[in-house]
Structures are given as structure tokens and as C-alpha cells.
Design a protein around this nucleic acid. Structure first.
Ligand SMILES: [Mn+2]
Ligand SMILES: [Mn+2]
Ligand SMILES: [Mn+2]
Ligand SMILES: [Mn+2]
Lengths: 144, 144
DNA sequence: TGACAAAGTTAGCTATGACTAACTCTGTGG
DNA sequence: CCACAGAGTTAGTCATAGCTAACTTTGTCA
């Protein structure tokens, strides 16, 4: 391998790691909005305590993160009231849910049991590129 | 759905999120030891500056993380010298590399191009359970 | 209607993992 | 053989994301 293509290869690998780090910065937000949207659909509203129960964190942690979602214009909240999604938050929630389901369905199609597939998808979903999602859809015979 | 199975379902989902958070605590270590092992194999030694180039971070960051690896008994290092893996670090490196390759190969088998597969695998690898890895091996016609 | 439990908030702490800037050490080439 | 460039370290900063403990608000029901 030539000098310059070695350097290129090093930069390519560095970019992969940088992409993973970038994904980590958005994944908490993605999981929260997906969950908030679920709760609103299922129970009519999203409350701090419900998010805390479902995420397995304390309500103080939820409060902190919700403030971040508000700052990022994904959610709105008034003190002591339940949490709402902005249009931007809703569209991220829908996108995240679809992606989660697609990843889970691919795992199931590969022979993973549903519980495990759903659990693994919770982490995997945040690291799947558009290209890979397209391949997944094709593999399942959807979209194209 | 009954009261108690609703509560169970909530706890199940919480556990999924907790597993993802646990994975995030180990993934930096996994990527580092894999890379250190690669560098030793390819160039004879693993130096801070090489890790920094390949990870896309500064050498100060590498230094910090290497200290953590030493604390966790995955690596050893003396000031101004190159970095070595402990037996524990070596075995984690081998395990991580195999897993990375398996994930990449599955993505390729599903029609993802090699570059994208390798990039996505960098994030996905840390969120794949033993059960899913077994399903992947079976799908590729390996192991089992 | 108001006591009080549940829910929400706030303050203060921790660890990780990133950064820059400034410093020290190493080892090589002139 | 030593200057100095490159490598490594250290100090100090920041954001995220978790925690506990203490506080405040809400809203229900006796
Ligand atoms: Mn998730
Ligand atoms: Mn999800
Ligand atoms: Mn990785
Ligand atoms: Mn890897």
C-alpha cells in the first residue's frame, strides 16, 4: 500500500469513529422523543415519572434531559405539567420508531427471538446508516 | 393487558435501555484495545499519536483513556513509552475484532457495500447480544 | 377543604470523554 | 553531541448523563 493510501485509510477509520461519537450525541434524544410519542399515544400524556420508569433512570435525570430537548426544540414543557413534542420532535419520533422496528424485524428475520431482537435494536438503531436501512428494507422485501 | 404484565413490560423496556447504557461504558475500551492490538500486529508497537490519528481525537484524549485502560487492567504503559495490552486486554481485543468482522460480514451479506458495512459495524458491534451473534453466524453458515 | 402522597424541581455531586494550551521528554540528524 | 522536532504529558475547561437528597407543587379523597 502506498504512503498516501495508507494516510487515506487512517482518515477513513477515524471518520468511522467520529460518526459513532456523533450518533451517541443524538441517541438519547431519539429514545426520549420516541418514548414521549408512545406515551401520548397510549395514555394521552407523557409525564416525567412515566419516562423515568420506562427508561430506568431517576426523575431528576429525566428533568435534565427534557430541558435539553426543549433547548433543542424537540419538546415543550411547563413546570409541573406533562411534556409535549414540537413538530420537529414528532417527526424525529416517527423516524426513530420506524427505524427501530425495521432493525428489530431484520434481526427476527435472521432468526433472533423477538425479545432479544427488540432489546438489541434499542442500541443498534442509532448506528445504522441510510444505505444500510435501504438494504434492510430490500432484504425484507419492503420498499425498494 | 393486566396490571402486573403492564408493569413487567415497563421493567423489560427499562432493562433494554439499561443494557444500552452499560454497553456505552465498555465500548470505548473495546475500540481502543482492538486498535492497540492492530497497531502492535501491523507496526510492532502502539503509540499515543497513532491511536489519536486513527480514532480522530487529540493525543491528550488518548492519554486520558489509556490511563483508564490501565486502571481497568486492560493495558500497561510507562511514561513516554508505547502501550501494551494485558492478557485480559488481548482477549478483549480478539473478541472485539471477531465480533466487528462478523457484524460487517452480515451487513455485506445483506447487500450493504463494504465501506458502509465497516463504518456501521463500528457502532453496531457494541450492541449485539450473544444470541444475535449466534444467529449471525448461523445465517452466514459459520459455526453452529 | 385541607392533609398528604405523589409528582416535579432544584442543587450539588460524580465519571466519561472530549477539547486547547502549555509544558516536558526522547531520540535522531547534522 | 546536542538542537530541536515530534511525541507524550499535564492542567484546566466543557457538555452529557447519570445519581441522591431536599425541596415545592399538585391534586385527590376523607
Ligand atoms: Mn435506542
Ligand atoms: Mn428505540
Ligand atoms: Mn466500535
Ligand atoms: Mn471495532
Amino acid at each position: 500500500m502506498s504512503q498516501s493510501s495508507l494516510k487515506q485509510e487512517i482518515r477513513r477509520r477515524a471518520k468511522n469513529f467520529q460518526r459513532v461519537r456523533a450518533a451517541h450525541q443524538t441517541e438519547v434524544a431519539e429514545d426520549y422523543v420516541e418514548l414521549i410519542d408512545d406515551l401520548i399515544a397510549e395514555t394521552g400524556e407523557a409525564r416525567v415519572v412515566d419516562l423515568a420508569d420506562r427508561l430506568g433512570v431517576t426523575k431528576a435525570t429525566v428533568n435534565n434531559t427534557v430541558q435539553r430537548l426543549v433547548r433543542e426544540e424537540l419538546a415543550t414543557s411547563q413546570p409541573y405539567r406533562s411534556i409535549f413534542l414540537t413538530p420537529k420532535g414528532q417527526s424525529l419520533a416517527r423516524k426513530s420508531r420506524k427505524r427501530h422496528e425495521l432493525v428489530r424485524d431484520v434481526l427476527v428475520a435472521l432468526g433472533v427471538d423477538e425479545e432479544t431482537a427488540d432489546a438489541d435494536a434499542e442500541g443498534i438503531e442509532h448506528h445504522v446508516s441510510k444505505e444500510t436501512l435501504a438494504a434492510f428494507r430490500k432484504f425484507l422485501g419492503r420498499g425498494e
